[in-house]
Amino acid sequence: MSVVKIIPVKHRLSAQMRRAGGLTVEQALSRAGAALEGHRAEAMTAIERTVVKLEAAAGAERETTTPDRIYDLSAEILDIAGLFGAQPLCDASWSLCELADRLRSRGEWEWAGVEVHVRALRFLLTAGYETTPVLKAVIDGLWEVTDRVAKA
């Protein structure tokens, strides 16, 4: 028979957060936002470098590129873009991760869907952080590709 132990827990964090002093939520968010801004330019450069790697992986290096490599590069974009609320880039890289993950888990692969995503990521690099109607149409198109693969 399985034994279940229930242990009451008190975190030091709760008491610390209630101590006098500290910052208001507004102050904390404003300071964190400013700190984040300081990283934006280098982060976007890093994302662009990863898109270049993806372009090479899906192009000249295709013969030796593994599905895991495509997934990892796409996840790398999501990792950084996800800290800046760059929604269109996040949505596109999320869709490519999903596509690569579904294909590799079925032991299948097709490049057409990957290529479309890589081109879209290149376009989205300069498209800003807001999902405008045009960008939404692009993202919807990517998801159609991913969903088609999911249902195949």
Partner: peptide
């Protein structure tokens, strides 16, 4: 969703 004036103190954490 967090009240903007809510104070949190993480300087000892």
């Amino acid at each position: 969703g967090l009240p903007g004036r809510l104070r949190i103190n993480l300087d000892q954490s």
